[in-house]
Design a protein around this nucleic acid. Structure first.
Length: 478
RNA sequence: GGGCCAGUAGCUCAGUCGGUAGAGCACCGCCCUUUUAAGGCGGGUGUCCUGGGUUCGAGUCCCAGCUGGCUCACCA
C-alpha cells in the first residue's frame, strides 16, 4: 500500500531513517513525554544549570561534526537545543543525529546561555516522539501557495506564525463574546442544525436525508426561529454561537458554513441591540486587540462609540445624489449607476441593489444603517408610526455587512401573513409550528445576529474569509 | 455559472526570440565541539498541472480540461 504512493527523494530517505530507528530498537513514534512548555524556561524563568524537559518540533538544525544545534518549537515558544557527543550517551547522540527538520522530539538537559546570550538546553537525553516523513516548507520564505495553505492548513500553522496568531485571536474573540453575554445574564443554548424547514433567512439550504425517519432534512440557514421559540418558553436572554450553512456561491466573503452569533433579549428592541452590538464589539477590540489599531487597507477604523447611524435611503442619497423614493425612473437611474436591475424588481429591491453596489463598499467606519422597508424584513416589527418601515438595523464596517438586528415581530397573525407573502401563498413553505409558538405569546424582544467570521476579518485586517476559517471549503483535489 | 490571471525541484522563485531545465533554502557525501539564515568543498534530486495540436524541435505558441486567485453574477 505505502509502496503505491510515489514519493520524492527526501521522503524516501526519511522513511529509510524510520526503518533504521526501528531496526536499532528505537520507536520512531513515542508515547507520553512529561515536559514543561518552552516559555517556562525563557526570560525571567531562566536560571543557569536549571533542569529542563521540553518537547516540540525541530525547525532548524546546525550540525558541527561532534556537536549539533537545533531550534525546537512548541506552542509556547522556541528554545535552542545543544547536543554534544562528549556529554551524552552514545545512543542518544545517534538519535539526535538521525533527526530531521520537522521531527518532534523530547529533550532533557540543563539550561545555559551561549556567547550571544541565547537560552539553550544542553541535552543529556533525547527521545524521538514523531518522525516526520516530509520536508517542511522553507524556513525563510515560509509557505505562500494559497492552495496548499488551505488544503494543508497544518503546514501553514507550523510555518506561518501570523496564521497561528490569527486563529488564537479568533478563539479569544469567541471567548470574549461568551464572557460578555454571560456576564449580562444571557444563557448559551444549542438549537437544531438539521431542520425539516430551513427558516429564518432566505438562502438556499443544503439538503440531507434521515434514513430511519424517512424524511429529508435541511442544514440550518439560521437558528432564529428556534431561538425565538425559547423566548416563548420563558428564557429571556439567550444566545447561540454556531454554524449556519448556506448553499450559495463561495467568495472572499462567503463560505458555505460560517459562524453566527444570534442573541435574543426579551423586553428589548432593535435599539437595545444596537447598544449591545457596540458594547460587545468594543469590548472585543479592547481585550483581543488591546486597543491596537484596526485597519482596512490604509484607513484606520475608529471604534469609539457611538457609531454613526443613517437611514438606508439617506445613505443612498449621500453616495449617489439620487433621492430614490422620489425618483420615478428609478430603473433607468439605477442602470445608469451601473447597477444591474431586472424589470420585475420592486422599487425597494432596486434601492437595496443600489445600496449594495454604491454605498456598502464605502462604509468603512462602523455604521448602523436603519429604516429598511418592511417588505424586506418578514421577521421584524414595523415602526410604530410607519408600517412600511421595519425596526431593523444592519451594521457595516470595512465595507461589509457585519450584523443584522430587529425588533422581533411577535404578532402571530401578522407573522403568518408575512410568511405567506414571502412564500407567495404556498402554505407548505410557511413554518406553521413557529407561528403556533407565537400564538402562545412571545414577549416583545430585540434580536441580533453577528457574523463572527467577518468580525474576525475586520479585527485582523484580513481580506478573505478563508484566512479566518481553519479549513475553508475547497473543491476536492482531482 | 461568466470574464481575467496563475500553475516549473520538497519550499520560494527565475527561465530571453520556440533550441532540449536553473538559483536560494531544503536534501545527499566529506570536513568541522558555542552555532543560530553557521561555515568550507563536492552533488540537481524535475510528470515544467493534465491531455491533445502546430513545429525539425514546445516550459515557452494554439485548443480542451483540472485546480486555485481576483472579479461579476448569486447571496435579505
Amino acid at each position: 500500500m505505502e509502496e503505491d504512493i510515489k514519493q520524492n527523494e527526501q521522503s524516501e530517505l526519511r522513511k529509510k531513517t524510520r526503518k533504521e530507528l526501528i531496526g536499532s530498537g528505537i520507536a520512531p513514534y513515542g508515547r507520553a513525554f512529561s515536559r514543561s512548555p518552552i516559555r517556562e524556561y525563557l526570560g525571567e524563568n531562566f536560571a543557569e544549570n536549571k533542569k529542563a524537559r521540553v518537547a516540540g518540533r525541530i525547525r532548524a538544525k546546525r550540525g558541527h561534526g561532534k556537536t549539533l544545534f537545533m531550534d525546537l518549537f512548541d506552542q509556547s515558544g522556541k528554545i535552542q537545543v545543544y547536543v554534544r557527543k562528549d556529554s551524552i550517551a552514545e545512543a542518544a547522540f545517534s538519535i539526535a543525529e538521525k533527526t530531521d527538520i520537522g521531527d518532534i522530539i523530547g529533550v532533557e538537559g540543563s539550561l545555559f546561555k551561549t556567547k550571544t546570550g541565547e537560552v539553550t538546553v544542553i541535552a543529556d537525553y533525547v527521545e524521538m516522539l514523531a518522525k516526520s516523513l516530509h520536508p517542511l516548507p522553507e524556513k525563510w520564505h515560509g509557505l505562500k501557495d494559497v492552495e496548499t495553505r488551505y488544503r494543508q492548513r497544518y503546514l501553514d500553522l507550523i510555518v506561518n506564525s501570523e496564521v497561528r496568531d490569527t486563529f488564537i485571536k479568533r478563539s479569544l474573540v469567541i471567548k470574549t463574546i461568551r464572557d460578555h453575554l454571560d456576564s449580562r445574564g444571557f444563557i448559551e443554548v444549542e438549537t437544531p442544525m438539521m431542520q425539516s424547514m430551513a427558516g429564518g433567512a432566505a438562502a438556499k439550504p443544503f439538503k440531507t436525508h434521515h434514513n430511519a425517519l424517512g424524511i429529508d432534512l435541511y442544514l440550518r440557514i439560521a437558528p432564529e426561529l428556534f431561538l425565538k421559540r425559547l423566548l416563548v418558553g420563558g428564557f429571556e436572554k439567550v444566545y447561540e454561537i454556531n454554524r449556519n450553512f448556506r448553499n450559495e456561491g463561495i467568495s472572499r466573503r462567503h463560505n458555505p458554513e460560517f459562524t453566527m452569533l444570534e442573541v435574543y433579549e426579551a423586553y428589548s428592541d432593535f435599539s437595545g441591540m444596537m447598544e449591545l452590538a457596540e458594547n460587545i464589539i468594543v469590548d472585543i477590540h479592547k481585550k483581543v486587540n488591546a486597543g491596537g489599531v484596526v485597519r482596512h487597507n490604509d484607513t484606520e477604523i475608529i471604534l469609539d462609540r457611538p457609531w454613526k447611524r443613517i437611514s438606508l435611503i439617506e445613505s443612498v442619497k449621500n453616495e449617489t445624489g439620487v433621492d430614490f423614493l422620489a425618483e420615478k425612473n428609478f430603473m433607468q437611474t439605477a442602470d445608469k449607476l451601473g447597477v444591474k436591475v431586472e424589470t420585475e424588481m420592486s422599487k425597494w429591491e432596486v434601492i437595496n441593489k443600489v445600496f449594495e453596489h454604491a454605498v456598502e463598499p464605502k462604509l468603512i467606519q462602523p455604521t448602523f444603517v436603519v429604516d429598511y422597508p418592511s417588505e424586506m424584513c418578514p421577521l421584524s416589527k414595523t415602526k410604530k408610526d410607519n408600517p412600511d418601515i421595519a425596526e431593523r438595523f444592519e451594521l457595516f464596517m470595512a465595507g461589509q455587512e457585519l450584523a443584522n438586528a430587529y425588533s422581533e415581530l411577535n404578532d402571530p397573525v401578522e407573522q403568518k401573513e408575512r410568511f405567506l407573502e414571502q412564500a407567495k401563498g404556498d402554505f407548505l413553505k410557511v413554518d406553521i409550528d413557529y407561528v403556533k409558538s407565537l400564538e402562545y405569546g412571545m414577549p416583545p424582544a430585540g434580536g441580533l445576529g453577528i457574523g463572527i467570521d467577518r468580525l474576525i476579518m475586520v479585527l485582523t485586517s484580513k481580506e478573505s474569509i478563508r484566512d479566518v476559517i481553519l479549513f475553508p471549503q475547497l473543491k476536492p483535489e482531482a
